[in-house]
């Protein structure tokens, strides 16, 4: 059981324990993000949306497996069900809303194998969150991911203009910037008790 308050869970997954900057989940899209803010924002919202789906399915799967006493299937069930549900949602969106699909749907298949999505499912289970806590946790994690992505995209825009030594250019530079970002996010520790 876990009685952490909803506000605390949200703040904690949004800022204090930001998925990207303190758990290193979802690093690939973070490092690969281009300097385009709009695209980063869309990607972030798509991830948040999938995280909510993942969180909801994980809660259901976990209670089902506890009932069946088959917890050793948890990981397999999580990854297969989340992947299928996301695909299903993608199809539904494609059929009913062309506009939504164009702005959100194209990211969906990419996101399924993103470790942050599975991370949400695994963390909420380990922490014994109930349904509401899990959803808030997923929302915070998704928005935290969006925030980190946006900051990075903004920095990338500026970095494009900066003169840096050849050796650091590319991924190394992004990593250094991420390290400094992560350091500044450490300042949020202790928020909300």
């Amino acid at each position: 059981m876990n009685t952490d308050s909803l506000g605390f869970i949200f703040l904690s997954s949004l800022l204090i324990n930001n998925f990207v900057l303190s758990y290193f989940l979802g690093i690939c899209p973070f490092l690969g993000v281009s300097g385009k803010l709009g695209r980063a924002l869309k990607m972030g919202f798509a991830v948040t949306f999938v995280m909510l789906i993942s969180s909801l399915s994980a809660t259901l799967i976990h209670s089902l497996l506890v009932w069946l006493d088959a917890l050793f299937l948890q990981l397999i069930a999580f990854i297969l069900v989340i992947a299928s549900v996301v695909q299903l949602v993608e199809m539904v969106i494609k059929k009913y809303s062309r506009a939504l699909f164009e702005s959100l749907g194209i990211f969906l298949p990419l996101i399924t194998t993103n470790c942050a999505i599975l991370g949400v499912a695994l963390f909420q289970t380990a922490r014994e969150y109930n349904l509401l806590q899990s959803l808030i946790f997923a929302l915070g994690a998704g928005l935290g991911f969006t925030l980190a992505l946006l900051i990075m995209a903004g920095l990338r825009e500026q970095l494009g203009l900066a003169k840096v030594p050849n050796l650091i250019q590319g991924t190394a530079l992004t990593l250094l910037v991420a390290g400094i970002l992560s350091m500044s996010f450490m300042g949020f520790a202790g928020l909300g008790g």
Partner: peptide, 15 residues
């Protein structure tokens, strides 16, 4: 040892 250190050390290794 903190998370930010991971980023720094990886950047160093890549270089």
């Amino acid at each position: 040892i903190l998370p930010s250190g991971g980023f720094f050390v990886l950047a160093l290794l890549l270089m």
